[in-house]
């Protein structure tokens, strides 16, 4: 098992889009090391021939009739937005400077 360095925590936190303080990186590295060590034993319990289960109850996909139903009014959907303009969510720039 790879040990959890603060660099590794920083790499995964970046993937998860979470800014962490240096002290948090340090603490999480130690905690995740212990937790991953405890949970990695799942691999010893199963063989290649064990099927995976993603869902507790077998299900078929469910479709409804393709008819228009009332939806949330735009103003309700926007009511809790951090910022909005002209009936749309207003977000920071998506593309980089270059």
């Amino acid at each position: 098992m790879p040990t959890f360095s603060t660099d590794e925590v920083a790499r995964v936190a970046a993937l998860a889009r979470i800014d962490l303080e240096p002290a948090e990186l340090e603490r999480l590295a130690g905690e995740l090391e212990v937790i991953v060590h405890a949970v990695e034993r799942v691999s010893e319990a199963v063989g290649d021939d064990t099927p995976a289960t993603s869902h507790p109850i077998p299900l078929a996909n469910v479709f409804r009739e393709d008819v228009v139903e009332p939806s949330l009014p735009a103003q309700d959907a926007l009511a809790a937005a951090p910022a909005s303009e002209d009936g749309r969510f207003l977000v920071p720039q998506i593309l980089g400077e270059d």
């Binding site: 799942v42 319990a45 995976a52 507790p56």
Partner: peptide, 15 residues
């Protein structure tokens, strides 16, 4: 595979 994949197989064993 080692983590999530195995965990889903354990789920089968528990069922």
């Amino acid at each position: 595979d080692a983590y999530y994949g195995s965990a889903q197989k354990v789920r089968t064993l528990i069922q």
